[in-house]
């Protein structure tokens, strides 16, 4: 029982980690809560559905396309909505409201196009999973776990070592200083939206291999992603991954003794606990703590 809950926690954590990663990456450069990140996750899943089921392209190709398009969508949201607001030097509250607006608008658009009913991306018979250490794990779950870890490591290496990745950290530290050395902060912000949104799209596709699609799926997802990012220390990349797995485990181990309906309550309980006791998160940095 416990082993299975741990396994479930790890799988859920893989998804949370991916959402939190993209959210954290974007937060680093723009310093506001890009709530609409959740709807990019939804769009990733629906695009994958459209390409594989409606159009009938090879799943791998369509997932790849969906991820790229999710990235383009994130970039588009930034250029069309946030960029004009940045130029007007809008307050954080305006950004948050705009972000909610985008979220609701696109979510309703999906509902309009695909209907409110549940869709299923998974095809073929349900195969029994592998028995590993007293748990049952399906191939899909292994795929989720491995993809999530690979993407996390790739992003970490990119931000740590590549020139453009470092420029993301530079803008995160001080956008004015970044422009002083010749970095165009707007381009770096665009880059972080593109990469971050691809990660959200990937998370949406991965989860839709496991469960069903519905237009509102992005809401819980972004809440969990944000909680994970805060637990880990908002803006920190290893922190986001850690926060994701921590949250996934806590939720699933929590229902060992409590009813399953309390999952979300556990997640928010942890959030409140962290905000009270350690608002900077596990790997938080003081300068970021001040902003929370």
């Amino acid at each position: 029982m416990v082993q299975q809950l741990v396994a479930n926690g790890i799988i859920a954590g893989s998804i949370y980690a991916l959402i939190a990663l993209g959210f954290a990456l974007i937060y680093r450069t723009v310093k506001f809560f890009h709530f609409a990140h959740g709807v990019v996750y939804t769009v990733g899943a629906y695009l994958a559905y459209t390409f594989t089921i409606t159009v009938g392209i090879d799943p791998l190709v369509s997932f790849f396309l969906a991820v790229i398009l999710a990235g383009v969508m994130g970039l588009g949201i930034d250029r069309l909505v946030y960029y004009p607001l940045r130029r007007q030097k809008a307050s954080d509250l305006i950004f948050l409201l705009a972000s909610f607006g985008i979220f609701i608008f696109i979510q309703n658009l999906i509902q309009l196009l695909y209907g409110a009913q549940i869709l299923t991306l998974r095809r073929g018979p349900i195969v029994e999973g592998h028995h590993v250490l007293g748990t049952i794990i399906t191939n899909t779950q292994i795929l989720i776990l491995v993809t999530s870890i690979l993407l996390s490591v790739a992003l970490w290496l990119y931000v740590k070592h590549s020139k453009l990745g470092k420029s993301i950290r530079a803008v995160s530290d001080d956008p004015v200083a970044a422009s002083i050395v010749g970095i165009n902060p707007e381009r770096v912000i665009g880059l972080s939206f593109f990469i971050g949104s691809m990660l959200a799209g990937a998370a949406g596709i991965l989860i839709s291999l496991e469960t069903n699609l519905e237009p509102t799926m992005g809401f819980t997802a972004i809440l969990k992603g944000i909680i994970a990012a805060i637990i880990g220390g908002i803006g920190s990349i290893p922190g986001a991954v850690f926060g994701g797995y921590f949250l996934g485990m806590a939720e699933n181990l929590g229902i060992w003794k409590i009813q399953a309906g309390w999952k979300d309550a556990i997640a928010f309980g942890i959030l409140i606990l962290f905000l009270l006791v350690r608002p900077g998160g596990i790997m938080g940095i003081p300068t970021e703590r001040e902003r929370l």
Partner: peptide
């Protein structure tokens, strides 16, 4: 000064050479 506080000394210099 506005150095990049969370980057290393070397990385700060690398950023200076961004162009």
């Amino acid at each position: 000064r506005r150095i990049f506080p969370r980057m290393t000394v070397i990385e700060n210099l690398e950023m200076g050479a961004f162009t």
